[in-house]
Amino acid sequence: MAHLNYEEGKKVVFKGFVILGIVTIAEVMVALVGKGYIIDGFHLPRFIMYSLMITMSFYKAFYIVFEFMHMRYEVPGLVRSVLMPTLLLIWAVIAFFSEGNTWYHWRKKVNDRPISQFSRAASSHSENSLYHIMDTKNQAQEKPMHAESEKKDSTLEKTHK
């Protein structure tokens, strides 16, 4: 199935090694330069840094699949049948991430509520101050045990705000 002869194949392998190595180093450099480790006081904007790193990772993935896994030499039907289903993940990524973002905003809304409405107990050594509002003893005693109703209540309050 290899459409290259042996010597060519060997060259491709070496080339692949060099390309993957260079791209990896480039990624790491972008990460370090972007976050200001190499040049003091110089930061790349997050958007540029992230899109560069993501693009390079996808290039690496493409190279591994197409050269190392010999996808380039397979018939187009096989390539399509394996790669096209992964497109389904695009919508999954959009939907899931937007959900994550929503949870963040809703939690923030709950935490930013005026505290006076609630009898706030000292949030002793709660591991994460962001959730201390939920820690109020009164609330907890009114609805013991019912984790789910707790959740729904707070959701309701969130949406009503």
Binding site: K35, L89, F97, G100, W103
Partner: peptide, 18 residues
Amino acid sequence: LISYGTLRFSSPTWPVPD
């Protein structure tokens, strides 16, 4: 990895890997 992304998006802070 999508779960990772979702939880990271929902989290107010995330440690810097470096």
